[in-house]
Write a protein that binds this DNA or RNA. Sequence first.
RNA 1: GUCCCCAUCGUCUAGCCUGGUCCAGGACACCGGCCUUUCACGCCGGCGACAGGGGUUCGAAUCCCCUUGGGGACGCCA
Length: 474
Amino acid sequence: MISMDNTIITRFPPSPTGSLHLGGARTAIFNWLYARHMNGRFVLRIEDTDLQRSTQESVDAIFEAMEWLGIDWDEGPYFQSKRFDIYKEHIDRLVADGSAYYCTCTPEQVDRMREEAKKSGGKPKYDGSCREKNLQWEAGAVVRFKAPLTGSTVIEDKIRGNIAFANTELDDFIIARSDGSPMYNLAVVVDDITMNINFIIRGDDHISNTPKQILLYQALGEKIPDFGHVPMVLGHDKSRLSKRHGAMAVTAYRDMGYHPDAMVNFLVRLGWSHGDQEFFTRNELIEKFNLDHIGRSAGVFNPEKLLALNAEHIRNASSESLVPHLMPFLEAKGIKTEPGEFLNGVIETLKPRSKTFIEMADGAVFYFQEKPVYDEKAAAKFLKPDLTGPIKQLADGIAGLAVFDEKNLEDIFKQVMADAGLGFGKVAQPVRVALTGKTVSPGIFEMILALGKEKVISRLYDAVQWMEKALGTE
RNA sequence: GUCCCCAUCGUCUAGCCUGGUCCAGGACACCGGCCUUUCACGCCGGCGACAGGGGUUCGAAUCCCCUUGGGGACGCCA
């Protein structure tokens, strides 16, 4: 508490007008990581001053996404809609000391001004008609900030260096609507001041808002926080990410079987680097993340790389840690199971061959079936009657095993192969079909071990029976 | 239109600040091959980029300028 001044306080301020999308998620992650890395604090704030567009569903979707990503906050969530008194207070103060003024121009009039300005080759701006009228409040009036007419405002950006704007580029922007509600720039600044935010990391689409906000800080006599503008995330066509780019909501990736750590890893790596390292665990990210290696150019979202990274995260995680992630997908397939040794063993065999949890659940099905469902072609090709003997011998051998382990399993296989004069593949593939119903599965021994002695034996005998019946019908 | 930002393989990027070690490194994807009981994993190799033009310099991916290209912002949205 002695040196609170040095504590980095970042924030993530989504507006609840939709689900949390990739770009927003990355901004959240950057702020969160920076706060964690710096041992600072991270604040969540919901920017719902636009009552028309904000929805409770969106608020819930944002929380859901944050939770899935594993981003926790130290303060909040604050809701701007509950802080109108605070904004009102600041707006009044600005009007009182002459930093802002009432404006009674109608939207139509302002539209015309913008047209005019555009025609004369400039930026569409409000022309300042009411600036010096010293109007009192009246119904329908908005409050405009009295922006400086000369000079320039400089952003000392921690990522991109200094960015200067001529103040003539700015117009007297509205800080309070005619219904008294605060506009974005005002609300953000007041919030960041009152919440002690001292480090703002956001998309570079906010660069042009920054001079306005800096001016507001100055008018309010407050210290300007540090800014760091990160490049945006673009769609495959290099345009701003939007609905037409397909899955944008981060939770859509949860539903497609992605691991949140992979998502975080991917998003961070899109714009930030640590030499050639591609794979990062959450803790590694907290340890290594900093602003020094954030790029300056926009990045294209590349789903294939996300997929590859997801596979890598699945491969590298402990089977046990994967259980809660996989469970919903198992349930969706009607598989009832519970955490434990058996499930861990199943996952262990599936890890290197699953790019998503959906794939993993697909691959896990045979382990849980009462009896495997034979793929017609596979059974016809590999469960030949002449294998009846060897398979039976194998089943008997396994049944007689005191210790059910890979070494003993191998010995039995060798014995069967030798007695039947068959190569390993000639035995293994039929066994695979007998046990899984398919020609593709995890390695034969690891799969047998994971399945468990009882199931292996009964499935083997079932196969023998099947083969004998097939023989009878021929 | 005006202002701002950006510019290395198809994509994500290292290198750029502190020019030479870069005829530019890694990853994804793609193509070969190896391993192998299937499918994967893994391993080896290949393809593939400093946007263009001017400078500065003995020397430029690295510094400067211009052009071009891309993106963003210009709202009683955030």
